[in-house]
Computed example of a mutant assay.
Amino acid sequence: MSTDYQKAREDLGRRLRELRVESPLGSLTGTELAERLGWPQSKVSKLENGRQTPTSGDLRAWAEATGHAGAFAELHGRLKGFESHIRSWRRQLAAGHRPVQDTWKTLVDDSSTLHKWASFAVDGMLQTADYARHIFEHYAALHCSPRDTEDAVRARMRRQEWLYQPGNQLNVLIWEGALRARVAPAPVLAAQLDRLSGVVGMDTVCLGIVPQDAELALPPGNSFRVIDQRLVVVEDWHAELWIDDADSVATYRRVWETFHASAVFGAEAQHVITQVRRGIERGSA
């Protein structure tokens, strides 16, 4: 997965390796450093190769064990940058929507549990091809990005293969206003709502609808995903915000649980979807 976020983590890993090899105490092997720290050798390897995000305590211990105690401030500064890593849409969409979808597929394929709050549109994992097509067209117009709509739609549909893998779980909450948003023609919206009704009760999907008249402990706010309790991706107009520090991830999980308390599921969710569909049919008559 090639992203700004991952590149920053790999850069930090290379810096950690430099400190180990250039130790004033004498160059240390990964195994020697692991023994000195009381860590498994695999942890040293993962940190140096950008496959694991270190804690502040990890960085302090590494700096001291390699004889570079003064490097901690630099390392900690790099770590703080991970807490709110901005991935601008302008940069991501420079080659169109297809590469973005491919990146997301890689990220999702490496995960088993997703929690999504969808406040403005149906989640991409549950979109029909026609609905996705209109969403991509709207965003391409907004960002003046290359129109690779059909390739992007196919890539998004391939992402949905994840739903049919045993052991995976999508927990998605959708604000009723997102269902009512006229972002596509009425027949496309009706088909999209039929798709949502069809996933109610699916083994790998827990779908909740937050009715517009439900009591809310928080305003709807931006859409976001929590991926395996390790990463949050927040969607905004100009960028995605990738957040992986434990405290912030926990905050977003609390937000998700708050909306979960206001959601309806099963037959009640299908009732809300049906009511929205009838309203769309009346409006297009």
Score class of each variant (00 low, 15 high):
residue 211 P to V: 10
residue 263 A to V: 07
residue 137 E to Q: 15
residue 24 P to L: 12
residue 164 Y to H: 14
residue 98 R to L: 09
residue 251 T to P: 03
residue 253 R to M: 13
residue 155 A to W: 01
residue 56 S to E: 14
residue 192 Q to C: 09
residue 81 G to A: 11
residue 284 S to L: 08
residue 242 W to I: 11
residue 181 A to S: 12
residue 106 T to E: 15
residue 213 D to V: 12
residue 46 K to N: 13
residue 21 V to W: 02
residue 149 T to E: 00
residue 81 G to P: 00
residue 126 L to E: 03
residue 4 D to L: 14
residue 215 E to P: 07
residue 232 V to G: 06
residue 214 A to N: 09
residue 141 A to Y: 04
residue 245 D to C: 12
residue 222 N to S: 15
residue 100 V to H: 04
residue 77 G to Q: 06
residue 39 W to N: 02
residue 126 L to S: 02
residue 183 V to E: 10
residue 239 A to M: 06
residue 138 H to I: 10
residue 135 I to S: 04
residue 31 T to C: 00
residue 133 R to Q: 01
residue 155 A to G: 06
residue 216 L to K: 10
residue 261 A to V: 05
residue 46 K to Q: 14
residue 153 V to D: 01
residue 161 E to S: 08
residue 170 L to I: 13
residue 213 D to F: 01
residue 67 G to S: 09
residue 184 A to L: 05
residue 274 T to W: 03
residue 180 R to C: 04
residue 85 H to I: 04
residue 6 Q to P: 00
residue 44 V to Y: 08
residue 44 V to T: 12
residue 169 Q to G: 08
residue 230 R to L: 11
residue 140 A to N: 03
residue 103 T to K: 08
residue 262 S to E: 13
residue 73 A to I: 13
residue 66 T to M: 08
residue 148 D to G: 02
residue 199 V to N: 04
residue 165 Q to S: 10
residue 53 T to S: 13
residue 103 T to P: 00
residue 248 S to P: 00
residue 62 W to P: 14
residue 42 S to L: 06
residue 192 Q to L: 06
residue 89 W to V: 09
residue 24 P to F: 11
residue 212 Q to D: 15
residue 249 V to C: 13
residue 200 V to T: 13
residue 58 D to K: 01
residue 44 V to I: 15
residue 152 A to E: 02
residue 158 R to P: 01
residue 42 S to A: 15
residue 258 T to A: 15
residue 33 L to T: 14
residue 160 Q to M: 05
residue 270 Q to R: 15
residue 273 I to A: 11
residue 280 I to K: 09
residue 166 P to S: 04
residue 52 Q to H: 10
residue 279 G to S: 12
residue 182 R to P: 03
residue 222 N to K: 11
residue 241 L to V: 11
residue 73 A to W: 02
residue 62 W to Y: 08
residue 177 G to A: 09
residue 215 E to Q: 14
residue 222 N to V: 01
residue 145 S to W: 02
residue 266 G to L: 05
residue 170 L to Y: 09
residue 225 R to E: 05
residue 30 G to F: 11
residue 198 G to M: 11
residue 188 V to C: 03
residue 31 T to R: 14
residue 273 I to Y: 08
residue 109 D to A: 07
residue 177 G to D: 06
residue 40 P to V: 10
residue 175 W to N: 13
residue 130 D to C: 04
residue 52 Q to E: 15
residue 240 E to V: 08
residue 223 S to C: 12
residue 124 G to V: 04
residue 49 N to I: 00
residue 153 V to L: 04
residue 182 R to E: 11
residue 76 H to T: 03
residue 70 G to I: 05
residue 70 G to F: 07
residue 248 S to Q: 13
residue 198 G to S: 14
residue 86 I to F: 05
residue 47 L to K: 09
residue 36 R to N: 03
residue 46 K to D: 11
residue 95 A to S: 07
residue 285 A to N: 06
residue 143 H to K: 08
residue 143 H to M: 02
residue 163 L to N: 06
residue 100 V to P: 00
residue 242 W to M: 10
residue 52 Q to C: 06
residue 189 L to N: 03
residue 158 R to A: 13
residue 260 H to P: 00
residue 24 P to V: 14
residue 109 D to W: 01
residue 118 A to G: 09
residue 161 E to A: 11
residue 274 T to S: 15
